[in-house]
Nucleic acid binder design. Sequence first.
DNA 1: TCATTCCATATTGTTGACAATTCTGCAATC
DNA 2: GATTGCAGAATTGTCAACAATATGGAATGA
Lengths: 226, 226
Amino acid sequence: MTDQNGAVSVEQIVEKVWLSIAERRLRPGVQLKEEQMAAIFNVSRARIRQALATLQRDGLVMIIPNRGAFVSKPSVEEARDVFFVRRTVERCVVERLCKGISKADTKRLREHVAKERIANADDITTDIIKLSGGFHLLLAETTGSDFLFATMRDLIARSSLITAVYRNTNRFNCGPDEHAEIVEAIVTNDVDKATRLMAHHLEHVESELDLTEIRDLSHDLRAALA
Amino acid sequence: MTDQNGAVSVEQIVEKVWLSIAERRLRPGVQLKEEQMAAIFNVSRARIRQALATLQRDGLVMIIPNRGAFVSKPSVEEARDVFFVRRTVERCVVERLCKGISKADTKRLREHVAKERIANADDITTDIIKLSGGFHLLLAETTGSDFLFATMRDLIARSSLITAVYRNTNRFNCGPDEHAEIVEAIVTNDVDKATRLMAHHLEHVESELDLTEIRDLSHDLRAALA
DNA sequence: TCATTCCATATTGTTGACAATTCTGCAATC
DNA sequence: GATTGCAGAATTGTCAACAATATGGAATGA
């Protein structure tokens, strides 16, 4: 949590908030007050502001001038959008990877899936959330394309928020088994199978969301009427 | 340039730098010193830092801790990546728009193309650059998808930088004629034609870049050797 | 002559205080 | 009883000074 100097870095603050949102401990609409957060993390407000700006970039919080930062409240349309774009972008990712993947990358992917299995077996929610998003991020990183990676970073962050808001079931079925299948299809350069599995996987994840109604987990009247 | 109080907003600083990069007046590798910029815009360093953070998010500058902010130097691979992703994302955009577009949106698109024609006729470089990127951005905005819009915003910003670095010709052939054709294909709901025209248009833009060699427009020895 | 060390300078990073804005509770008014 | 106006409190926005770090060149020694 702290580095050599006992201070918390911006990245650590961002990750902490990100996880709190993904774990539903921070609900959409809640205001993230700077001074309050500065006290919690024991850093100056400037660093908190920097973290909030990053979280805004990632679409997790919404900053209103002179009002403050609030946990984002994605609409059903936005949720569908994110999955729509994910389908196309992740298809690109898989197609690229099927053109050939190094031994080292294969190893990294398999090891990641192994970690996911362990987290699932031990039922450690924090790890499950981090690793299941991390898998898709790792795929993008493996393509070697900085831009694909950056795009997926955005998509995964927003997906976490959407999952937190609209998830129906309590279990995370974006599980290691489907991930493992995708990896194996990629290492055998089977483009058709890999893209089909990825498409199916994303449909599966989306199907576990209830995207029929607007969920309002907050009690902020102002936001509800805006 | 200035608001009521005579101060320059963060957004204005970002746009100014963005344009300077697109117009090749700020070259890749050049360091953007905070104090220097604060003096130029007559604001405090804090505001400059905020603007630099935004520019980093857009991929236009690279911030190295304890070293400073430098105008990004996209590699040939990164350049190809951006156009690769643009082809898929803009295809999505066009497909969506072909499903139906309102009268008001049609009007906005046609008016935008008209503005582009005027800028081209009058040969106002600043307007040409802003409007030709703005066209693609307007298409994304018209889909109504916040995420598609945000993604295109990123892509256009990076494309501007890439064009500035790797452009061969002096003329901007991302001209209004091809844009006009795309708009007309969209308003007639001709998906095949619209996607074909968009693909061709992007190929055209990319073809005017020289993506065979690493261009180093800067004179910063350290950066050149890094 | 070349490599290395050290110090002065320049630049970024951080902090706490102050200014501007917004929110909240209460009282006065219709 | 509901609404408006106002003052105090809470919160965000801005700034300028200070601390930490990196840079570049001179001095030193092989």
